[in-house]
Nucleic acid binder design. Structure first.
Lengths: 213, 213
DNA sequence: TAGATTGTTAATCGATTAACAATC
DNA sequence: TAGATTGTTAATCGATTAACAATC
């Protein structure tokens, strides 16, 4: 599994493979060929084989791929065999939605803490987890070995909070604030810009209405 | 503005241009060159000029681009000069987060209705909007000319609800359910698969920890 | 063994970057 | 006019697809 220089295009497809393989596994499917998977996922068999071969051969000539094995290996590549400690900053609806989403815990993403700058929320519970004031951020991160910070706060404070997280050793940020964070290159940032997504939908919808599809 | 065959790679960058130009405009910046914008956004000036030229020339040799004009034109391309009527199906935390996000309304996305299959929620208000039972879905869509459906429901019911929406004439679906919807090709679908996003972050974080960056 | 299907190389396609003539 | 910067063509780069030899 000597991964080097895998393109983000490939990485971006891995979670989808993982999802389909998980479903096949749940259905009791034991083996699958790149051609069958191609048909199921609407991507070319060639791409499937190329993608998997970036990480070494998982299949067998004449047989195909073992579903359970491939599922597990992709999980490992994605780092899902390890646990990650995360905190959510901003316990509005979006923060609460994420906190309540059980599946993340199942994948090894452990919600260690919740933070909010609204004093009225301090001490309240979300899914049994206490909401803490921002003043406790640094000490909490250090004490709980937090490696992922989730930002569900307005863009005005995002840059500032991100800086505080990184200063305490947080190595990855899942950013829902509508701003491009300026952080050292070794910090991994994954942006979820919801309004960008809606605008893309709007473009495609508008274009289709104009009959340009 | 004769758009034809614009790649999704280009479309995907438009919202980000739009955001940066909006901020520049708010700061009172009147003109900007592709080189200055390049420096600001960390993309090549060449790409910026190529991207804009897909839609016709918005700039002027020797001058650059007028910020306010370019901002408005990109807004038009994205369809933000028109209003869209949308409904949100699923009023859990995620649905409520979206319903409360005022910016969508500012961009012309009008939240016409909220739906949930939980009878206990029927009649409750979210940001002044009444939550309706799923039985009213079809009549409401027809009566309010809904063109975008937002799915913030579990994946088990997503396919079924999407089908009902499309059957009533909904032309675009913003899908937060963790499933690939099988719909006619003329229906625009934009997926927000949050766990896919988190897995990508996990991959990059894991790879970095292994010292493979 | 024969058939099937991978792993991998080669060919194609598309997207990005570079270069520069056009022109404000 | 001279300088600046776009619009656009050409060159490069990377990603996808096709083809096929290797092999189970």
């Amino acid at each position: 599994m000597e991964e080097k220089g895998i393109s983000q295009a490939v990485i971006g497809r891995l979670p989808r493979y993982f999802r389909f393989l998980g479903e096949l596994k749940d259905q009791g499917v034991e083996r699958i060929s790149s051609q069958e998977l191609s048909y199921l996922m609407h991507v070319t068999a060639s791409q499937i084989r190329q993608d998997f071969n970036n990480f070494g051969g998982f299949g067998q000539q004449g047989y195909g791929y073992n579903v359970a094995y491939l599922y597990e290996e992709i999980g490992k590549i994605l780092g899902l065999d390890q646990t990650h400690n995360l905190i959510i900053i901003g316990t509005g609806h979006l923060g609460q939605a994420l906190a309540n989403y059980m599946n993340f815990e199942r994948r090894g993403f452990l919600i260690k803490g919740l933070f909010d700058n609204d004093p009225k929320l301090t001490g309240t519970l979300v899914r049994g987890i206490e909401v803490r004031p921002m003043s406790e951020l640094e000490s909490f991160i250090t004490a709980h070995n937090v490696d992922i910070g989730v930002l569900t706060i307005p863009k005005t404070s995002a840059e500032d909070v991100a800086g505080r997280l990184v200063a305490c050793g947080v190595k990855a940020i899942w950013n829902f604030a509508h701003v491009d964070l300026q952080l050292p290159p070794e910090v991994q940032v994954e942006n979820v810009h919801l309004s960008d997504s809606l605008m893309k939908l709007s473009y495609n919808l508008t274009r289709q209405e104009k009959g340009q599809v």
